[in-house]
Design a protein around this nucleic acid. Structure first.
Length: 441
RNA sequence: GGGUCCGUAGCUCAACAGGCAGAGCACCCGGCUGUUAACCGGGGGGUUGCAGGUUCGAGUCCUGCCGGGCCCGCCA
């Protein structure tokens, strides 16, 4: 008998198959029992008829509790009455191993959903639930789309180091690690500087990996360990990289809509919100964004903002509300952006940068810029920021030996997946979230 | 770092003004041949987060500690 995965059942209608999985739920009407089995790839209902089965098999139903590991054998049928459309007429049931205790997370009763703190305590079990299953499958699709996007454009994946001797951006807090007799090094908070070296060596590169920020940021948009995609392109201007960012986001959304529709439905995601994400994205400057804020303030919105500041999450939301797709904000004041960004030749107080703000309050999903490519200007910025010049000598070399314009950006995977799935917090879209207050499980 | 709210059964929640800790789900037993968060009947289950204090009496009031939620700042 063929062993099959639930996601492939459509190819086995009429056949007798074996499914190995776990008991997700069960219901009975006496002489007919229904089992909902999950095997990781999906969920399927199996029907047990008293009239069809040996008594000892039929009676096994009574002993089943949540998350027992089971092996079932039976015939695959299409059936409108079955959740999911396919059903197994059960012929044989084997309880491979029993749950040893009451399952700590109750199943699918909305009035009975544990509070979020308890769910995270049982995160290792919570990921078996339907919504978490759907969420993590969408995350996989987003990641796969990212690799396919860059692969199809012949980018070379370039893995920057995770141990780094110095801060990339100087401002944010780093996680120190004891590194033999060399003392303290830090977990990376961005691979960007290394990616710039990669772009000069390989032309178009991107990285995909974890980054770490020791910020005690307790918000729905922050993790201390999160994943980031960072492309970096030689000879690219700000405009080039904005187009790349736009294409990437559109492609991710298309792929999720195409391949993860069932999962979006499980999550009750409003598909029209995602279907609206098409080129072109609106492009506004920082100054124009400030004007929008002032207009909203005059309309009576409670906005506390002064020109020259960075936008807080409230401001981002107010601005993004005007659009049905992500909005690109360019040319922020130099003072609130990192040293490596290139000043705008038309207004040296601004830099050639772009932030992409997702709709629906999901905030900044992309931050990017054209990099300072002039040796002297970069050196001066490093000194102004009081950064350790020695640590940046290799980075300055990139401007010493055939410097060219180049640009890149970073896309936050969790924020993007949270937006796709409609999650209320980024910690729900990564298997095991790391926040300032939680390191277990 | 700042603000704010909450800890009662495995889970979600009740418990008047301080007066015998209770219900639904889960679990166990019984019933029901198409259930869809099934349903119906019965049963077991508690050091009310921890440590003190006030009181004849504390889940309830006070103090401290521990654990957690939400919002903001910083960012992706």
């Amino acid at each position: 008998m063929e062993k099959v995965w639930i996601e492939d059942l459509a190819e086995h209608v009429g056949e007798e198959v074996e499914i190995r999985g776990w008991l997700f739920n069960k219901r009975s009407a006496g002489k007919i029992h229904f089992l909902i089995i999950r095997d990781g790839t999906g969920f399927v209902q199996a029907v047990m008829l008293k009239s069809d089965l040996p008594e000892e098999v039929f009676n096994l139903y009574d002993t089943l509790t949540y998350e027992d590991a089971v092996v079932i054998r039976g015939t695959v049928r299409r059936d409108k009455r079955a959740p999911g459309g396919y059903e197994i007429t059960l012929k044989d049931l084997e309880v491979y191993s029993k749950s040893l205790d009451t399952y700590p997370i109750p199943k699918v009763r909305p009035e009975n959903v544990p509070d979020i703190g308890k769910l995270f305590k049982f995160r290792h079990l919570w990921i078996r639930s339907r919504k978490q299953w759907a969420t993590l499958r969408i995350r996989d699709e987003v990641e796969r789309a990212i690799h396919d996007f860059f692969g199809s454009r012949k980018f070379v994946r370039f893995d920057p180091p995770i141990f780094t001797p110095a801060s990339v951006e100087g401002t944010t807090t780093l996680f120190p690690v004891n590194y033999f007799e060399k003392g303290e090094v830090y977990l990376t908070q961005s691979g960007q500087l290394y990616l710039e070296a990669g772009a000069m060596a390989l032309g178009k590169v991107y990285s995909f990996g974890p980054t770490f920020r020791a910020e005690k940021s307790r918000t729905r948009r922050h993790l201390t360990e999160f994943w980031m995609v960072e492309p970096e392109v030689a000879w690219a201007t700000l405009e080039d990289i904005m187009e790349l960012a736009e294409d990437l986001v559109v492609y991710i959304v298309e792929r999720v809509l195409e391949n993860r529709r069932t999962e979006l439905e499980i999550l009750n995601r409003d598909l029209s919100k995602l279907e609206a994400v098409k080129k072109p994205f609106p492009r506004i400057t920082y100054d124009e964004a400030v004007r929008i804020l002032m207009e909203e303030k005059e309309k009576g919105r409670d906005i506390d903002f002064r020109y020259g500041e960075d936008f807080g999450s409230d401001e981002e939301t107010v601005i993004s509300e005007r659009y049905d797709r992500p909005v690109m904000i360019t040319r922020y004041p130099r003072k609130i952006k990192p040293f490596y960004m290139k000043p705008d030749p038309e207004d040296p107080e601004k830099v050639l940068c772009v932030d992409v703000i997702a709709p629906e309050g999901y905030g900044e999903i992309i931050g990017g810029s054209q990099r300072e490519d002039d040796y002297e200007a970069l050196l001066q910025r490093i000194r102004e920021e009081g950064l350790p010049e020695e640590e940046y000598s290799w980075y300055l070399d990139l401007r010493k030996y055939g410097s060219v314009p180049h640009s890149g950006f970073g896309l936050g995977v969790e924020r993007t997946v949270a937006w796709m799935t409609g999650a209320s917090h980024v910690r729900e879209v990564i298997p095991f979230a790391r926040t300032p207050d939680r390191i277990r499980p």
